[in-house]
Every structure is written in structure tokens, then in C-alpha cells.
């Protein structure tokens, strides 16, 4: 009887799970496996899109492809800059939102707004803000007397990179603040009181209580953000299209152009595979270091 119930429960369990697994397999597993397979073929306009097996040629070509290495470099800069800025700023905002003040509910609502809005449209708003003639950034800098003529923010590779980083920091800092705020709220206040009795400064109690106890949330926020930043597409695609002169072209934009503009499917697939492996590597390294620092931190407290 018990066996029968258990068997029936198991069957129900699978019935409930299989649709989800099927959809996930179709949309996540199939495209990756398909890209691995396609990456061994040359499929482009040169052979009228009829697949020809060429082994590792696509990967060999990638090693020689300066544009690929340039996009990888841009992606790295973008990822490191946005994630670290967002972490610091997100922490600051979370600390502010964790204080008690009048109108806190409204401020918390406002503080998640940027995260919820469509990135592509937000990218349009930031393009307008950084506009060389009528943009607000130039207007403010001119009024402050810091510059004499308007800066062409999106027309210079370095400045364009700074612009897209600023826009991304604005858009995704709220995500980190939300996660960190939830962590802050779960820290018991008597820990701070004990610290205050010991005569600790705010900075000391932040270092000794807040940071170590917040580490799980920081780890998760970091992992999510690393992966998202590494795959950034819509924001940069709308703001600069990867320009000027490839100055803001990330791996995602290069993959998209390779497939949709140059119709080079085999090489695009190889780019997908390598990006996927790099992403796995980044996430694995990040989680390794973070779990180690987590252990050390919990040992210290």
C-alpha cells in the first residue's frame, strides 16, 4: 500500500515536471547543442549556406580574428566596470533604504523603477541624455563651466564606452540594491547594538557585521550580474550599435552581426560556443573565489 502510494506520487511528480523540462530543453539545451554541432561546419554565403564539414576551422579562424579579440576585450571592460560600480552604488542605496525615514515606502518604490523599465527604451533615453548638441550631460557641464564646447559622447570610442557603462549602472543598480536590502533586513539589530557598546565606528560595524553577513546576497547578485553583463546586447545595440569603430562592440553584438548581417552561421555558432564556455568559466571562477572568501569571513565572525 505504501509502495503503491509512493509510486503514484512519483508518477504524478514526473507528470507535473516534464512539461517544464521539455520547454527548458527546447529553448536552452537544444540551441547550445545545436551551436556546438554547427560550429564544425562552414555555413555561409560562400557556399550558398549549404553546410560543409570543416572540423575546427571556425575555431582556428577565431584565434586569428582581431575583431573577436577586440569584442572580448570590450566585453571584459564593460563587465568589470559595470558590475563593480553597481555593487558599490547598490550597497550604498541599500544602506540608505534600510534606514528609517519618512516616505521610505515611496523611495523604495522609486528605487526599483529603473530595473523594471525596458532596456531598449531606456537606451533611447540615455542616447538623448548623451546627445552631443542637446544632451543634458553637455548642458550641465557647460553651465558649470567645465567644458567650452559640447562633447560628442557617443562619437568617440572611449567616451561611448563610458556612456554605455553609465546607462547600464543606472539601469541595473536597483537589482543589486533590492537583493542587498533584503539581506540587510535579515541582520538582527542587536548585533549592531553590541558593536556600538564596544565603541565601534559605523565603518567598523559595517566591516565586521554587515559585510560578512551580507556575503551570500553579494555572491548571488554578483553571479547574476556577471552573467547578464557578459551577455549585454540591447542597451549597447540601441545606444551605439557597437560603434564608433567597434569601440563598444561586445561579443553579443558581434555574434548577432555575424549571423544576421553576414549570414555566417557556422562561424556564429563557434562564437556562441566559445562565449558560452567563457561565461561558464567566469561564473565558475567567481563562485569559487566567493565561496572561499565566504568561508574565511564566516570563520572570522
Amino acid at each position: 500500500m505504501v509502495d503503491y502510494v509512493r509510486a503514484q506520487e512519483r508518477r504524478t511528480g514526473w507528470l507535473l515536471t516534464i512539461p517544464a523540462i521539455a520547454v527548458l530543453a527546447l529553448v536552452f539545451a537544444y540551441p547550445i547543442l545545436r551551436a556546438v554541432w554547427q560550429s564544425f561546419f562552414t555555413i555561409n554565403l560562400g557556399n550558398q549556406l549549404s553546410p560543409a564539414f570543416t572540423g575546427l576551422d571556425n575555431y582556428a579562424r577565431m584565434a586569428q580574428d582581431g575583431r573577436f579579440w577586440n569584442t572580448l576585450w570590450n566585453t571584459t571592460i564593460f563587465t568589470v566596470a559595470t558590475v563593480s560600480l553597481e555593487l558599490v552604488l547598490g550597497m550604498g542605496i541599500a544602506l540608505v533604504l534600510n534606514q528609517s525615514f519618512r516616505g521610505r515606502g515611496i523611495v523604495r518604490t522609486i528605487a526599483i523603477l529603473p530595473w523594471a523599465l525596458p532596456t531598449a527604451l531606456i537606451a533611447l533615453a540615455w542616447t538623448w541624455i548623451f546627445n552631443d548638441q542637446y544632451g543634458v550631460v553637455n548642458d550641465i557641464l557647460l553651465r558649470l563651466g567645465l567644458i567650452q564646447t559640447g562633447i560628442n559622447w557617443l562619437g568617440n570610442p572611449t567616451l561611448a564606452m563610458i556612456s554605455v557603462i553609465v546607462a547600464d549602472v543606472w539601469k541595473t543598480t536597483p537589482f543589486i540594491s533590492i537583493l542587498l536590502l533584503a539581506g540587510l533586513q535579515s541582520i538582527p539589530s542587536d548585533l549592531y547594538e553590541a558593536q556600538a557598546i564596544d565603541g565601534a565606528s559605523p565603518w567598523q560595524s559595517f566591516r565586521q557585521v554587515t559585510l560578512p553577513l551580507l556575503l551570500p546576497q553579494i555572491v548571488i547578485a554578483l553571479l547574476f550580474r556577471l552573467a547578464q553583463a557578459f551577455g549585454i546586447f540591447d542597451l549597447i545595440s540601441v545606444m551605439t550599435g557597437g560603434g564608433p569603430g567597434g569601440g563598444t562592440e561586445t561579443v553579443s553584438l558581434y555574434i548577432y552581426a555575424t549571423v544576421m548581417r553576414y549570414l555566417d552561421f557556422g562561424y556564429g555558432a563557434a562564437l556562441v560556443v566559445v562565449t558560452f564556455l567563457l561565461l561558464v568559466l567566469v561564473v565558475a571562477i567567481a563562485s569559487f573565489f566567493l565561496s572561499r572568501s565566504r568561508k574565511r569571513a564566516s570563520g572570522a565572525v
Binding site: 512519483r10 547550445i32 545545436r34 547574476f224 552573467a227 551577455g231 546586447f233 561565461l279
Partner: peptide, 26 residues
């Protein structure tokens, strides 16, 4: 109690980190 529950959960977690650019070609 499902067999392979942990594998399914791990899969679900990993998949949250996939950017869509890796999927659009397939």
C-alpha cells in the same frame, strides 16, 4: 520525492545565467 531532483534544480539554476544571445541562433 523525485529521482534526479537535485540535477533538475541545478539545471534550472544554471539556465538562469544564460544570456539570450547564446540561444537566438538555435
Amino acid at each position: 520525492k523525485l529521482q534526479g531532483e537535485r540535477i533538475i534544480l541545478a539545471g534550472v539554476l544554471i539556465v538562469t545565467l544564460f544570456p539570450p544571445i547564446l540561444l537566438f541562433l538555435g
